[in-house]
Design a protein around this nucleic acid. Structure first.
Lengths: 189, 189
DNA sequence: GTCTATAGAAGGATAGAC
DNA sequence: GTCTATCCTTCTATAGAC
C-alpha cells in the first residue's frame, strides 16, 4: 500500500495521481485506503516526508585519516554525483520543487535531511583537513558549497529534464574537473 | 487573457489551475478561452514556452575588452545570481522541472534558451580571455559550468523552496567567493 | 478491516443563441 | 467573437453491508 503510493507519486506527482489509481495499484479498495490515511494530502505528505528522511547517509564516505586528498575527493565526488543522477533522487527533487508551495513542510524536511546534512558533513571534513595542513580553506562551509556546485553542472539539469542520459565518461570528466579546480584553488602553496 | 493565464500558471502550476479560474481572472467566459486556445494543454505549453524564450539576454553583460577579469566576473556573477533568485526565474524553473515529464518540449525550450545559451556565451568569453593570456583554461565549457555552479549554492535551493529570502550580503559573499576560487584555479601563474 | 456503491463537487470541453 | 447553460468524466470522500 505504501509502496504503491510511493511509486505512483514519485513517478507522476501529486495532482496526476488519483486515490483510485493508488487503491488499484495496491490491490485494495479506496475505502480501505481512507481507513488508513485520512486524506490524499496526508498520504502524500507522509510518503514524501518519509522518502526525504531515508536518503542515503553520505557522511561515512569521507575517510577520517585521509592524507591523499585528491583520491578522497574523487571517490566522494563520484559517489555523490552518481547519487544525484539516480532516478529516485531526481524524482524526490522534482516532487519537492513542484509541491513546496502547497506542502511547505516537505521543502523543510528535504532540505534538512538532504542538502543541509550533506554540506555540513563535507564542511566539517574540509575544516579538519584544513587544520591538518592538507588544505588551506578560510571558509569551509562555502568551500563545501562550491565543491558540490561544481558537480551539479548542466548535465544534472539535462538528465533532470529528461533531455539526455548521463554517460560514465561525462560523470567522470565532471568529477575530475571539479576536484582539479577545487585543489588548484585550495591546495597549500 | 494571456497575462491572467501566465500569472496563474506561474504561481500555482499546471494541475492546480482550472480553466474556470483562468477565465474568471481574465474577465471572459470559458467558451471564449477555448475559442482562442484549443485545450488547456495547448494554452499551458504556449504560455510557458513563450516565457522560456523571453528570458533576459545575458550575453551583453560580458565586456569584450576586459583586462580586469576580476571586476568583470564580479559584475557578471552578481547580475547572474540575482537573476536566478528573481521570483519570475524561480517560477519558470519550478514549472519546467515539475512538468517536464508531461511536457517534454518545455524542458527543451527552457534548456536551449536559458542555461545552454548562457553557458555558451560565458564559455566563449572565457576562451577569448584565455587566448589573450588573462586566464589559463584548458576546457572553457567546463570552466563556465563550474563558475555558474559555484553561484548556485544551497542559497538558491533555500529560496526556491521558500525556506528563506536572499539577503544582499549573502549574495555578495557567494559571488565574491566564487570569483576568488575561480581565479585562484584559473589565473596564470 | 475490508468491500460495493454512491454521494457531492469540480474540472475540461462544447452546443447553440446573440 | 462572446456569452449562458450544460454534458460528461473524474475526483475526493463516505455510507452501510459483511
Amino acid at each position: 500500500m505504501l509502496d504503491a503510493a510511493t511509486s505512483l507519486f514519485m513517478a507522476h506527482g501529486y495532482g496526476a495521481v488519483s486515490m483510485d489509481a493508488v487503491a488499484r495499484a495496491a490491490g485494495v479498495s479506496k475505502a480501505t485506503l481512507y481507513a488508513h490515511f485520512n486524506s490524499k494530502d496526508r498520504l502524500f505528505a507522509t510518503i514524501i516526508g518519509d522518502a526525504c528522511q531515508h536518503r542515503i547517509a553520505l557522511g561515512g564516505v569521507l575517510p577520517a585519516e585521509a592524507t591523499d586528498i585528491r583520491s578522497a575527493l574523487l571517490a566522494f565526488g563520484g559517489r555523490l554525483l552518481r547519487f544525484f543522477l539516480e532516478e529516485r533522487a531526481l524524482a524526490i527533487h522534482r516532487i519537492v520543487i513542484a509541491e513546496s508551495t502547497r506542502f511547505p513542510e516537505l521543502g523543510r524536511a528535504f532540505y534538512d535531511h538532504g542538502p543541509d546534512a550533506l554540506l555540513r558533513s563535507l564542511a566539517a571534513w574540509l575544516a579538519e583537513r584544513s587544520r591538518a595542513g592538507h588544505l588551506t580553506i578560510a571558509d569551509p562551509a562555502m568551500a563545501a558549497e562550491q565543491f558540490v556546485g561544481m558537480l551539479r553542472t548542466s548535465l544534472f539539469l539535462r538528465v533532470s529534464l529528461g533531455l539526455a542520459a548521463a554517460s560514465a565518461a561525462e560523470i567522470d570528466a565532471t568529477v575530475e574537473a571539479a576536484v582539479s579546480t577545487f585543489l588548484r584553488a585550495y591546495e597549500p602553496a
